Simulated assay, not measured.
Amino acid sequence: MVTNNSEPVPYPRDFVPPGVRIAGGIATVQGLVLLGFAVYLVVHALLGHREETVQISGYGTAIWFVIMGGAVTAAAIGLLRNKRWGRGLIIIAQLVLLPVSYYLGVGSEQWAAGVIVGASAIVVLVCLFRRESLEWYAA
């Protein structure tokens, strides 16, 4: 918070800026989607589906998505609960999602998914780098 004389005013202990709440909400959805995709991969592998052209284990990929989805979800919930430690992990996840969104659109021709992933990553980054979000983080 900034007063009229441009001196920073400390935030109350329980205050979370709207931008951080928006970023936390979007990142929570992203993490839950990763966890849901992990469940899908496990079920798919249990039903006997094997990738013929690429030697990728559905179980191994699912474990990776559980790790990433769990970390992103935990960090996002941390942001929503006024825990600053989640911000760095969420920023890194969004920076990883930007090239993923490009690949979804250009490489896989799943344009809708690419636009959704890319737009959500940009919104989260903008929210976390807004002035009040930076002041909250620095407090």
Rank of each mutant, 00 (worst) to 15 (best):
residue 33 V to R: 04
residue 95 L to C: 12
residue 120 S to H: 03
residue 60 G to F: 04
residue 29 V to H: 00
residue 90 I to T: 15
residue 89 L to Q: 05
residue 63 I to Y: 11
residue 52 E to Q: 08
residue 44 H to N: 14
residue 130 R to M: 14
residue 107 G to Y: 08
residue 127 C to N: 05
residue 71 A to N: 05
residue 19 G to T: 07
residue 49 H to Q: 02
residue 31 G to R: 08
residue 74 A to F: 11
residue 23 A to P: 09
residue 22 I to W: 11
residue 26 I to A: 12
residue 131 R to G: 12
residue 93 A to F: 14
residue 38 A to V: 05
residue 27 A to S: 15
residue 35 L to E: 03
residue 12 P to H: 13
residue 108 S to C: 07
residue 58 G to C: 01
residue 64 W to E: 11
residue 61 T to S: 12
residue 104 L to H: 07
residue 62 A to Q: 03
residue 18 P to N: 08
residue 59 Y to C: 03
residue 35 L to M: 13
residue 134 L to G: 09
residue 103 Y to W: 15
residue 45 A to L: 00
residue 96 V to W: 13
residue 54 V to N: 00
residue 130 R to L: 15
residue 100 V to H: 09
residue 91 I to Q: 11
residue 81 R to V: 04
residue 97 L to S: 14
residue 117 V to W: 09
residue 102 Y to T: 06
residue 39 V to A: 13
residue 131 R to A: 14
residue 22 I to Y: 09
residue 56 I to N: 04
residue 80 L to S: 02
residue 102 Y to M: 12
residue 138 A to M: 09
residue 55 Q to V: 06
residue 124 V to K: 02
residue 87 R to V: 12
residue 34 L to S: 14
residue 71 A to V: 15
residue 79 L to H: 06
residue 130 R to K: 15
residue 45 A to S: 13
residue 47 L to R: 09
residue 85 W to Q: 10
residue 12 P to G: 10
residue 47 L to P: 00
residue 13 R to E: 15
residue 14 D to A: 07
residue 7 E to R: 08
residue 93 A to K: 12
residue 67 I to H: 02
residue 59 Y to R: 00
residue 82 N to M: 05
residue 119 A to T: 13
residue 114 G to L: 11
residue 77 I to K: 09
residue 54 V to T: 00
residue 83 K to I: 04
residue 39 V to D: 02
residue 98 L to I: 15
residue 63 I to F: 12
residue 60 G to C: 01
residue 68 M to Q: 06
residue 57 S to Y: 02
residue 72 V to I: 14
residue 45 A to I: 00
residue 116 I to N: 03
residue 131 R to D: 14
residue 55 Q to F: 03
residue 134 L to P: 01
residue 128 L to H: 07
residue 53 T to I: 00
residue 79 L to A: 05
residue 99 P to I: 12
